[in-house]
Structures are given as structure tokens and as C-alpha cells.
């Protein structure tokens, strides 16, 4: 990554530091109760002090997130290709797909626990349900936006439907796919935490819940910080994979 790119993050860093500084000052000046709203430094302190416990929960949540995201990627990609196969499939499946997103996850999660028990499965399902939608939609849109002239060219070469998909349409849809995947990656950790919040033996969601019920607000915040960092990490990881996988796009700043 070039210096110029790094410099692009400057304003965000400045703003973040400013917000935390203000927060710290507000708490220190006793404008709010430091028990109800702990100051940033106190939160970081709590995070470091409790890291041995937090790390176990973090690992659990990470595992659920990554597995769920991976399944959602395969599922989303497959669904996008399926939607692309014929207008009829698109017309019949698309409304169902959108409806699936209107189901409140907090209502569904307890049912999943009843059906699948306390272990990984229900959390992975929640993460998958959160993540497959943006991936499928972005990828389907990417496939649908193939230049018709390009299709004509392939047609004149007598390319089969699968060849057209494989040689031209899927690679062309990759930038859209990665946009979807980036959104999904940011959702994914939240999904795992929602799943754990309902019922779990381990995980950041459980940690937040027990900390909140025992009034240890600073620990809730510590877990929130870890969640945010985990999400940012996944977002960065997806961007890195995109950078490596699509050298033609990044290197010239070409957005289609």
C-alpha cells in the first residue's frame, strides 16, 4: 500500500482521536457518571486486564463468524448464478430472498437454539442468514450488468452459456461480488453476537450479556471494542483479498 493511500486515512484517524479525546474529557470532568459511561482509557485498561478471559470468547466468536461468512459466500455465489440462469428463476426466487431479510433475527435465533442446540450450528446459521443476502444481490447485479456487446462478441465466437459465464461474466462480476462481501464481513460479527446473545456457552455475545446483567458496564464496552476491531479486521481482510485477486482493478484505480 502506498504512502498516498495511507495518507487517505488521515482525516478518519483525526476525527476518531478527537471523538475519543472529547469523550475522555467529558467523563473526567464528571459531566457523566463514569460508572454508566466509562472513559476510553478505562475501557482499554479493562480490556487489557481481562484479556485472558476475553480472548477465549473472541476466539469462539471469530470461529462462528468466519465459518458463517464462508458458508454465506458459497451459498450467495451459488444463488447469484442460479438467479442468473433464467428470468423465471429470478422472478420466483427473488421475492422470497427479499422476504427472508424481513425476518427479525432476534426472533429466529431462539428457534434455532431450540432446533439445533447450544453449540456452533445455530450461530453459524444466523451469521449465514445475515451475510448471504448482500453477497447474492451484489453478485447477481454484477452478472446482470455484463455489457451486451460483450455477450454478442462471445456469441459470435459460438461460446457456450457456461463459457460465457466462466470467461466473461463471472470475472466481470467479481468487483461487485467483493463489494457485497465487504458489506457481509461487517455484518457477520454482529450476526454471531446476536446468536450468542440468545443462548451460548461461550462468545462475545454471552460475555456482553453476563457483564451487563452484573452491571459491569466497562466490560460491555471492552467487548464492544473487540467486536469493532474484529469487524474492521474482517473488512480489511476482504479488501486485501480483493487487492490480491483483482490486480487489474486496484492498480489503476479503475472502477467499473
Amino acid at each position: 500500500m502506498s504512502l498516498k493511500r495511507l495518507a487517505g486515512y488521515g482525516p478518519a484517524v483525526v476525527l476518531t482521536v478527537a471523538i475519543f479525546l472529547l469523550w475522555e474529557l467529558v467523563v473526567r470532568a464528571n459531566l457523566v457518571n463514569s460508572h454508566l459511561l466509562p472513559a476510553p482509557i478505562a475501557i482499554m485498561q479493562a480490556l487489557v486486564d481481562n484479556w485472558d478471559v476475553l480472548s477465549v470468547h473472541t476466539l469462539q466468536t471469530s470461529l462462528e463468524t468466519v465459518l458463517g461468512l464462508a458458508i454465506a459466500t458459497v451459498f450467495g455465489l451459488g444463488l447469484a448464478i442460479l438467479l442468473d440462469l433464467s428470468p423465471w428463476i429470478r422472478k420466483s426466487v427473488y421475492p422470497l430472498l427479499i422476504t427472508s431479510q424481513t425476518i427479525p433475527m432476534v426472533a429466529l435465533a431462539p428457534l434455532l437454539v431450540i432446533w439445533f442446540g447450544l453449540d456452533l450450528t445455530p450461530k453459524i446459521i444466523v451469521v449465514t442468514l445475515y451475510c448471504f443476502f448482500p453477497i447474492a444481490v451484489a453478485c447477481a447485479d454484477g452478472l446482470a450488468s455484463t455489457d451486451p456487446e460483450l455477450m454478442k462478441l462471445l456469441h459470435s465466437m459460438r461460446a457456450s452459456r457456461w463459457q460465457t459465464l466462466w470467461l466473461v461474466r463471472l470475472p466481470g462480476a467479481l468487483p461487485s461480488f467483493f463489494s457485497g462481501l465487504r458489506i457481509a464481513a461487517t455484518y457477520s460479527v454482529t450476526g454471531a453476537i446476536v446468536g450468542e446473545y440468545v443462548a451460548a456457552e461461550q462468545g462475545l455475545g454471552l460475555y456482553m450479556k453476563t457483564s451487563a446483567s452484573s452491571n459491569a458496564i466497562v466490560l460491555v464496552f471492552a467487548a464492544i471494542v473487540v467486536t469493532a476491531l474484529l469487524s474492521l479486521f474482517l473488512f480489511g481482510l476482504v479488501s486485501l483479498i480483493e487487492y490480491i485477486a483483482l490486480p487489474w482493478q486496484q492498480r489503476f484505480g479503475q472502477k467499473r
Binding site: 456487446e149 462478441l153 459470435s156 465466437m157 459460438r158 466481470g172 487489474w248 479503475q254
Partner: peptide
């Protein structure tokens, strides 16, 4: 017979694949 595949067709835009 089918004509597709028997001609070298070049459309107005070069239509190069950006990832290749």
C-alpha cells in the same frame, strides 16, 4: 449451417477484458 464461429467479428468498441 450455423454462422457463429465462422467469422472474426470485431465490434465498434475494442471490448477488451480488463482482467486479462
Amino acid at each position: 449451417g450455423e454462422r457463429a464461429g465462422k467469422v472474426g467479428y470485431m465490434p465498434q468498441q475494442p471490448l477488451l477484458l480488463p482482467w486479462r
